[in-house]
Write a protein that binds this DNA or RNA. Structure first.
Lengths: 119, 119
DNA sequence: TACGGTACTATAAAAAAGGTAAGTAATGAG
DNA sequence: CTCATTACTTACCTTTTTTATAGTACCGTA
């Protein structure tokens, strides 16, 4: 995750799919390696950066920051900075972010069913 | 998409998430650039390779093949080869593949809502 | 014999995503 | 003054995903 190259075929293809298929558009928004896990963690309420890091023990700080920024840019979560030292930053789902919950639950159920099939 | 390096941290992280979160596991299965679009196309019934290619005009044959193989390996779709010349191959969703439909619809609705917010 | 249609495969390269390691700022505690 | 704490940032590197381009087998038709 970093800068995208707007001149690439890949970029053009993504744009095209995003325009034509809202489900692909949605999948792209929640589609980073850690995005869904982060959303899932925030379903139960706000959390600090460090708490998220504990819940996702193997994520690097860089990745956590990047994914949080992307989710924030996409309006999925809200970031609140408290002017304290040491700093305190809280993350919480926005309205549209909370509307992901039924989708997450459905994916969870489907994933479980799929796993059972492939035992 | 090709061989994965089982010794990479990335691979380990994915495995871990897949084990712990069924929703992430599910997202990984339907999470290629074209996978959802392919599933979507197949919701209305079986299709041939060439038909899929027409629906996704900018996909390369290689990508279409790779994604179809992956979906097949994951039991999302079934591939039927007819011993004819020129060859004919049909793809259709399996049972678990069809169970994706409500999820796709939900993603579609959510995607639309999200787009409206960001106009 | 050359050609067309279908569903691929092989190889290489580009682009995107993810990981490693180190550093930063501000402040209060010791 | 030094250290610990928190939430990052930066530069660089590896892995994974996607794209580009060319080529294959088969057989019936012209």
């Amino acid at each position: 995750m970093s800068k995208i190259k707007v001149s690439s075929t890949n970029y053009a293809n993504k744009q095209l799919l995003n325009e034509e298929c809202n489900e692909v558009y949605a999948a792209n928004i929640i589609g980073g390696q850690w995005s869904l896990a982060i959303c899932c963690a925030l379903i139960n309420g706000k959390m600090r950066f460090g708490e998220l890091r504990k819940i996702l023990p193997t994520i690097t700080e860089r990745m956590l920051t990047l994914q949080l920024r992307r989710l924030e840019d996409n309006g999925i979560l809200k970031r609140t900075v408290y002017a304290e030292v040491p700093p305190r930053v809280e993350y919480e789902l926005t309205g549209i972010g909370q509307q992901l919950e039924p989708i997450i639950r459905a994916l969870e159920t489907w994933g479980q069913a799929h796993k059972n099939l492939h035992l």
